[in-house]
Computed example of a mutant assay.
Amino acid sequence: MFDTKIALIVRNDLAIWQRLNVVAFLASGIAASAQEVMGKPYIDSNGHQYGKMLGQPMMVFEGDLPSLQKVHKKAIDQELTIIPYIYAMFSTGNDDANRQVFLAEDANHLNLVGLGLRGPKKAVDKAIKGLTLHK
């Protein structure tokens, strides 16, 4: 089927709107960093062309902060594509501010609320081992 896997992990103590927001941002990060997984535009029966979506599934998992931090370390070790989202990014209003608060965060103890991962299927599976699918 696919040699690669995409996993989105969101923290389980967030409000629903926050979870959905984080997942949307993580998915956009995966799409931006892996142009080769983009599908073709959709065309309806009237000939109207729509935008593209990723051409492979993304699985959404959940976990607590220690679980996300553990996955983050494993993902670095596995050299996966990693899209991070930290709690401080909820308080910013733009992408530049997001990068500033991310840079200010302790890299060894990120207050993660979400991670997007992409890489070889076995490596992603190793990084997310023990997580459960989002309910």
Results as ranks from 00 to 15, higher is better:
residue 122 K to D: 15
residue 128 I to R: 00
residue 109 H to V: 10
residue 127 A to L: 00
residue 89 M to D: 10
residue 82 I to S: 06
residue 95 D to V: 10
residue 66 P to T: 04
residue 16 I to L: 11
residue 8 L to P: 10
residue 99 R to A: 13
residue 90 F to N: 05
residue 107 A to R: 14
residue 22 V to K: 01
residue 33 S to L: 08
residue 124 V to W: 03
residue 40 K to I: 10
residue 81 T to I: 15
residue 105 E to M: 02
residue 59 M to A: 14
residue 17 W to G: 15
residue 58 M to H: 08
residue 85 Y to S: 09
residue 124 V to P: 06
residue 58 M to S: 15
residue 127 A to W: 01
residue 44 D to M: 02
residue 51 G to F: 02
residue 65 L to T: 05
residue 47 G to C: 03
residue 129 K to S: 08
residue 109 H to Q: 13
residue 12 N to D: 15
residue 12 N to H: 12
residue 25 F to Q: 13
residue 125 D to K: 08
residue 74 K to G: 13
residue 52 K to H: 14
residue 118 R to F: 01
residue 42 Y to M: 09
residue 12 N to L: 09
residue 37 V to A: 10
residue 42 Y to R: 07
residue 15 A to E: 15
residue 89 M to Q: 12
residue 40 K to C: 07
residue 85 Y to V: 08
residue 14 L to C: 08
residue 46 N to E: 11
residue 42 Y to L: 08
residue 121 K to W: 02
residue 105 E to A: 00
residue 91 S to V: 06
residue 96 D to A: 06
residue 101 V to F: 00
residue 104 A to W: 03
residue 48 H to S: 14
residue 124 V to I: 03
residue 84 P to Y: 01
residue 98 N to F: 00
residue 90 F to A: 02
residue 13 D to L: 02
residue 61 F to Y: 11
residue 36 E to P: 04
residue 60 V to I: 10
residue 74 K to F: 06
residue 79 E to D: 14
residue 15 A to P: 14
residue 87 Y to E: 14
residue 85 Y to M: 14
residue 91 S to E: 15
residue 79 E to P: 04
residue 84 P to M: 02
residue 125 D to C: 06
residue 24 A to R: 05
residue 7 A to V: 08
residue 19 R to Q: 06
residue 102 F to S: 05
residue 127 A to T: 02
residue 57 P to A: 06
residue 108 N to T: 11
residue 28 S to K: 07
residue 15 A to Y: 13
residue 99 R to P: 10
residue 92 T to E: 04
residue 19 R to Y: 02
residue 95 D to Q: 11
residue 30 I to T: 09
residue 34 A to P: 06
residue 116 G to L: 01
residue 99 R to N: 15
residue 56 Q to D: 08
residue 15 A to T: 14
residue 25 F to A: 11
residue 93 G to Y: 01
residue 44 D to W: 05
residue 91 S to N: 14
residue 56 Q to M: 07
residue 110 L to K: 01
residue 51 G to L: 09
residue 21 N to A: 06
residue 65 L to F: 01
residue 31 A to P: 09
residue 54 L to I: 03
residue 12 N to Y: 09
residue 109 H to W: 04
residue 58 M to G: 15
residue 80 L to D: 05
residue 110 L to A: 03
residue 51 G to Q: 08
residue 35 Q to Y: 13
residue 100 Q to H: 07
residue 12 N to F: 09
residue 20 L to A: 12
residue 25 F to R: 11
residue 125 D to Y: 03
residue 96 D to V: 03
residue 114 G to F: 00
residue 60 V to E: 07
residue 53 M to D: 14
residue 59 M to S: 14
residue 38 M to F: 02
residue 94 N to T: 05
residue 65 L to C: 00
residue 40 K to N: 15
residue 118 R to I: 05
residue 36 E to K: 03
residue 99 R to T: 10
residue 13 D to N: 11
residue 50 Y to Q: 06
residue 67 S to L: 10
residue 84 P to S: 11
residue 110 L to G: 06
residue 14 L to W: 00
residue 34 A to R: 07
residue 34 A to L: 09
residue 6 I to N: 10
residue 89 M to V: 05
residue 93 G to A: 02
residue 80 L to M: 00
residue 78 Q to I: 00
residue 40 K to H: 12
residue 64 D to F: 03
residue 14 L to I: 07
residue 8 L to R: 00
residue 101 V to E: 01
residue 29 G to P: 06
residue 94 N to H: 03
residue 45 S to W: 11
residue 102 F to H: 03
